Simulated scan of single mutants.
Amino acid sequence: MESGVSGGISVDVIVVGGGVIGLTTAVVLAERGARVRVWTREPVELTTSAVAGALWWPYRIEPEPLVGEWALQSLVVYEELAARPEETGVRMVDGVQGETRLDELGSWAARVPGLREARAEEFAGGGLWARLPLIDMSVHLPWLRNRFVELGGTVEEASVVDLSEVPASVVVNCTGLDSLDLVPDRSVRPVRGQLVVVENPGITTWLTSVDHSADTSTYFFPQPGGLILGGTAEENAWSMTPDPATAEAIIARCAAFRPEIAEARVLEHRVGLRPTRPAVRLEREVLRGGRALVHNYGHGGAGITVAWGCAREAADLVGARAA
């Protein structure tokens, strides 16, 4: 059992939301014996999760003490899935978190295997060297869906306007940014990320150089379909249209680290809106008639990083209702 979960849940559940949080939560619930359906407004290949880079690392997500544990649980699962990269989309890849020091991170960092200070020849500006999961979402999301279906679950395209009207004993809200209106939760906001995908000129390691107080960052991730370049972190920006000037600036920042990127052919432009709030919301509330609504949203830029840990906690909340 790849998620490492145990315990039985005998209850009908509808998970609303077909991104990485919704699908992972559905898999964990199905593995625990729940009868689960996923309702998604659009195919999983068109969700926000499909745009992600996607490197395992706690980025723009709170609260840090809980995030560290969720992330470490997820790391163990991804390390197992990396044994079958063609099937799962997960690979373990070396790289550098630039301008980052161990003493700046939470206690979780001490439990990341092999995380160490980067040597000068690895990154002149100082940083951390690590071998971390790098996830090809074009493969991983369909794998999650297939895994869920193999467990007896069903994925249905459906739009929801009122979570309390969803016909299930337990409803799990994994709607991300849509929780702004569906809950409604006015603390939810978008943080816009723009990416450029180029032909990989032979780069095999990833790199990040992120100023968490700025609305731009620099990173590149070698994926099977090309080298993904980033990025931006624009608060409360809703535009899904790639900006040409922003794309040029992304390429220039990445090329400052690896000059060969400047000549790489552009394959694609991507934009995604990170579903951010002051802290992840993972809690259960009671609906009319004693039914339960479990919330699992607000993961910002680290939904992939914490997906399995949060899914287990959400399943625990479902199980508490079902017991």
Rank of each mutant, 00 (worst) to 15 (best):
R101W: 10
P167F: 13
G230F: 12
E122D: 02
S10N: 03
R274A: 04
G319Y: 09
Q194M: 07
S239L: 03
D211H: 12
N200I: 00
E64P: 04
S213M: 08
T40L: 01
R312Y: 04
P278S: 07
R281C: 01
G290D: 10
V196W: 07
L46P: 00
L72R: 10
R291P: 03
I9S: 03
I203N: 06
M240P: 00
E79F: 02
F148C: 03
L317E: 09
P224K: 14
R288Y: 04
L267R: 14
G89S: 03
V183D: 14
A118N: 12
V161P: 00
R186W: 07
A323K: 09
L132G: 06
W206H: 12
W143H: 15
L105Y: 11
V210W: 11
A314C: 04
F221D: 10
E283L: 07
P142A: 12
V38K: 05
T24M: 09
T154C: 00
W238M: 09
S213Y: 09
V28A: 11
A233S: 15
G309P: 01
A130G: 11
L282W: 02
D12L: 00
V149L: 02
G89A: 03
V90R: 06
A302F: 05
P63S: 12
R312C: 12
V198L: 02
G298K: 08
I9N: 03
L81N: 04
A255T: 13
P244F: 08
V67F: 00
P133D: 05
R186P: 00
V191K: 13
I9E: 04
T25I: 03
N146T: 09
C254S: 12
E117G: 10
G19N: 08
A247V: 13
A52R: 10
V139C: 06
E62V: 07
E260V: 13
T216I: 10
G33P: 03
V27I: 10
A110K: 14
G7Q: 09
P167L: 14
L151N: 08
R84K: 14
S6Q: 13
R116E: 11
Y59W: 14
L46V: 10
V171M: 13
S179G: 15
G272V: 01
